[in-house]
């Protein structure tokens, strides 16, 4: 072995990384080469100095205590978790089976009984929110059907062959349709849903008044209305650049669809639809006066009355 090789391998020898044979070769060389023997001693010395120097760094007592405390905390946290898990599994023990079943049954019955009450707690706006399906069908009807009648000049009259509710609808609507020009009055069903359709224009803007019979799909919740739908008031939506305003009666939905901006459509819907809404609500067999009063309405009335008294 040459001195160069010896120096290359020396560190690995000190780390005990060499094969036994190589170790022997190295030791043999060191025996016959004093400078290499000295180098071996120096490197060993340096290694020990390095070890002593680094060993002075110790984890402080405080850090050690913190570490132990942290471990204990970790253990107690995991223990409480195990305990909880076992308490839960013990619930499935046979002894508890009957009481648990009885409790569950009582809860289910209570839930079923409470369901209508729970429902009535949702706000009227949520309860009577119209489905997107209905709104898009109305918009689509306006979009497909109304443009056909822009050029129509003949006086538009609803045929007497349609549903009794819709007969004479254009006359009812006339009182709210001031400043509008009526182009058509008919019943159509371009997408399957039947609408009574009155087509108006105002300064070039196309306006549809649509009335349709309510079904289960009309409301977002998919149920028939369980309370007074007039509470819902005017609902508005924007679909395909069209503005929609909708009123509801117990059996019908009345919509005003136009390409006017939302604010203008809102104003128009109020004036145009209100006589129609009133008319249809009467036909639905429930005049506004006969509608059941709601508690919060009463409360509000009482509150306003008391405020007014205070004013005086």
């Amino acid at each position: 072995m040459e001195c160069r090789n010896f120096k290359e391998l020396l560190d690995s020898y000190l780390c005990q990384e060499l094969a036994v044979e190589t170790n022997h070769q190295l030791l043999n060389h060191a025996e016959h080469c004093p400078p290499c023997r000295a180098e071996m001693a120096s490197r060993r010395n340096m290694r020990e100095a390095l070890r002593r120097a680094c060993s002075q760094d110790r984890l402080s007592e405080e850090a050690c205590d913190r570490l132990r405390a942290r471990l204990r905390a970790e253990v107690s946290a995991s223990e409480s978790l195990i305990g909880r898990r076992q308490r839960w599994t013990s619930l499935f023990d046979l002894r508890f089976a009957i009481p648990i079943t009885v409790t569950a049954a009582v809860l289910i019955v209570a839930a079923v009984v409470m369901l209508p009450f729970l429902k009535s707690q949702t706000t009227p706006a949520q309860l009577f929110e119209l489905s997107e399906a209905l709104l898009s069908e109305a918009a689509s009807d306006h979009h497909k059907c109304a443009p056909k009648f822009i050029q129509a000049t003949r006086a538009a009259v609803m045929p007497s062959t349609v549903e009794p509710t819709y007969v004479g609808l254009e006359k009812v609507a006339a009182s709210g349709a001031e400043g509008l020009r009526l182009h058509a009055a008919h019943v159509c069903a371009p997408d399957g849903r039947r609408f009574a359709h009155l087509v108006y224009t105002r300064d070039g803007a196309l306006i549809s008044l649509l009335v349709t019979e309510r079904d289960k799909r009309a409301l977002k919740i998919g149920n028939l209305p369980s309370a007074d739908v007039s509470l819902a008031g005017l609902q508005e939506a924007n679909l395909k650049n069209l503005s929609l305003g909708a009123f509801q009666t117990p059996k019908h939905v009345i919509l005003v669809v136009s390409d006017l901006p939302t604010a203008e459509n809102h104003k128009l819907a109020q004036t145009l639809a209100s006589p129609v809404v009133e008319h249809i609500r009467k036909l639905d067999g429930q005049s506004v006066a006969a509608l059941p009063q709601y508690r919060f309405d009463d409360g509000l009335t009482v509150l306003i009355a008391s405020l007014r008294k205070g004013e005086r």
Binding site: K7, E39, N45, M46, A49, L50, A53
Partner: peptide
């Protein structure tokens, strides 16, 4: 060039070099 290792060195020197 791999120089011969100094024989006299203190812990502080080794640590500083490290």
């Amino acid at each position: 060039y791999d120089p011969p290792t100094p024989q006299r060195l203190t812990e502080a020197e080794v640590l500083a070099a490290l």
